[in-house]
Simulated assay, not measured.
Amino acid sequence: MNKTYEYIIIGAGIAGCSTAYFLSKYSKSILLIDRNCDLAQGASGAAGAFLSPLLGKPNKFKDLVTKALKFSTEFYKEITPKEITNCGVVRIPKNNEDEEKFQSYKPYMDFEFTQEEKGYFFEIGSQVNSYNICKILAKDVEKRFKYEVKSYKKEDRFWLINDEIKANNLIITTGADISLIDEKYFNIRAVWGQKIDIESTTCISKNYHKACSLSHSVKLEDKDTYLTSIGATHNRIDCDLRVCNCCLSKKELSDIEHDTYTKELVKNNTKELLEKANDIRLIHEPKVVDIKIGPRASSIDYFPMVGKLVDSNKTLDKFPHLKNGSHIKDEMLSTIDNLYVLNGVGGRGYVLSPYLAKVLVDEIQKNNFLNVEITTHRLFKRWVKKLF
Rank of each mutant, 00 (worst) to 15 (best):
M1F: 14
Y7P: 06
Y7E: 00
I8Y: 03
I8T: 03
I8M: 05
I14R: 04
G16N: 02
S18E: 05
Y21E: 07
S27L: 01
S29N: 08
I30F: 01
D34E: 08
D38F: 01
A43F: 03
G45C: 02
A49R: 02
A49F: 00
A49W: 05
P53V: 01
L54R: 11
F61W: 02
K70H: 09
F71T: 05
T73S: 14
T73E: 11
K77E: 12
E78Y: 08
I79E: 09
N86Q: 15
C87H: 15
I92E: 00
N96F: 13
K101N: 12
K101H: 15
Q103A: 13
D110V: 05
E116C: 10
E116P: 09
E117G: 10
G119W: 05
I124E: 10
Q127W: 04
Y131L: 05
A138T: 08
F145G: 10
Y147F: 15
K150N: 15
K150F: 07
S151P: 07
Y152S: 02
W159E: 06
W159P: 08
W159H: 08
D163F: 06
D163S: 13
K166A: 08
K166E: 12
N169W: 02
L170R: 00
L170P: 03
T174H: 03
A176V: 00
D182T: 10
N187T: 14
A190N: 01
G193L: 04
I196W: 00
D197Q: 12
E199A: 01
S200W: 05
S200T: 09
S200Q: 02
T201K: 13
T202P: 03
S205F: 11
H209V: 13
S213I: 06
L214S: 08
K219E: 15
L220G: 13
L220H: 11
K223I: 02
T225H: 00
A232V: 00
N235M: 10
N235S: 14
N235I: 12
C246M: 14
C247F: 13
L248A: 05
K250Q: 15
L253P: 04
I256F: 11
E257K: 10
Y261C: 12
L265F: 10
V266P: 05
N268A: 12
N268Q: 13
K271P: 07
K271N: 14
A277K: 06
A277Q: 05
D279Q: 14
I280M: 07
R281G: 01
I283D: 02
E285P: 07
E285N: 14
V289P: 05
Y302V: 03
Y302C: 09
V306C: 09
G307K: 00
L309R: 00
N313T: 10
K314A: 11
K323T: 12
M332C: 06
S334V: 09
D337C: 07
N338P: 04
G344Q: 01
V351Y: 00
P354G: 06
I364G: 03
K366T: 08
N367K: 03
N368E: 14
N368P: 04
N371C: 09
I374C: 01
R378W: 06
K386N: 14
F388Q: 11
F388G: 11
F388E: 12
